[in-house]
Structures are given as structure tokens and as C-alpha cells.
Amino acid sequence: MNKQEFTISVYTENQIGLLNRIAIMFSRRKINVESLNVSPTEIEGISRFTIVINEAEDVVRKLARQIEKQIEVLKVYYNTNEEVIWQELALYKVPTDVISEKAKVERLLREYGAQAVVIRSDYTVFETVGHREEIDGLLEALAPYGLIEFVRSARVAIIKDSEGFHNKLKEFENREPSEAVIENEFLNKQSEVFTM
């Protein structure tokens, strides 16, 4: 099966040790995590892991079920890039004299929509927000101009078809599971899995 990029969104209780419990599910299967972000959600006390991996869908589905099985995990979604809106943020540190002297650099920064965060006499820090290709594009373009330091954040992603987690959580708090709470209800019915 063909590997492709999947964004796995994991809704969890905020609990110490859960990061490890989730991380080892990937390492045990020798799956490289391309990007990992843990953040709060629209609901207090619920965390959201956003994990990007490059794998075949079959592997991702099984993995999602194993993650969802963990006691403190509420729900797992996995989506292809077409099904999410995502961003990454990057910081670039460039010598200030290079920018001030070379018009080409300035053009590059405009082209990639980079914003200056800090300007000092010795260096300037720019940021860009976007998809990896854009970020990497500027990284490559800046390399010949004495790029001092570069860092890129993990991906954060929002699922296009999601209505948020409020209603879902109410269902989870009921003792009797509703139809929608059932894991893997829509076996092999890819499109329906993402209705949330």
C-alpha cells in the first residue's frame, strides 16, 4: 500500500505520562513521527495531540485503534492532507547587514511573506507561517545568504469537517455509549469517519 502523509488528531484527558504512552505506540511499530504537537483544545482539561506520520492507510487505521484503546484517550481521528487545514511556523535568523545590503534577500522575504520579529544590528529574526514546502523553500533560498539559525514548529491542524468536541464530550460523559461514540463504527468507510 502507498504511504502518504496523515495527520492524526488525538483528544485526551490532560494526564502526566500519556505522552509517553502514545509515543511508544509509534516507536514499538518503528514508525517515525514527522511532527508532534500537544495543545489545549476548546474544552478545558482536554488536550489535543496532532501527530504527522508518513504511512499506509491500513497501518494508520490500526494504529488509531490502538491509541484510542488507551484509557485516557477520548477519540482519535486520522486525516489525509486534503481533509485538514494546517500550518507550521518557522523562525529564521539572518545577519542584518546581508539583508540591508542585498536587495535580492529583501525580495525573497517579501515573496515568502516573512515577517520580522526582532531586528538587531547584528541579526534579524523572521518568521513564516505556512505549509512545509513554503517554509523549506525560504530556508533553501536563504542558505546562500548566511542563514545563522533555523527552527520549524510541529504541525497544527484543524479538521475541515469537524464540529468541535463539545457535543462529543457530552456523549462520552453518558454512561451508555451513543452510536456516535462507538469506535471504528465506520469500518472501511473512509468518508464517514471524518464526519465527527
Partner: peptide, 14 residues
């Protein structure tokens, strides 16, 4: 304990 919101011991029978 008989309920944990993030834990569903038995999937619903369909």
C-alpha cells in the same frame, strides 16, 4: 468506579 468518560469497556452492539 463504574464510569470513566474516556474509556469505553464494551463497544455498543450493533
Amino acid at each position: 468506579c463504574n464510569h470513566i468518560r474516556s474509556y469505553l469497556p464494551k463497544p455498543k452492539v450493533r
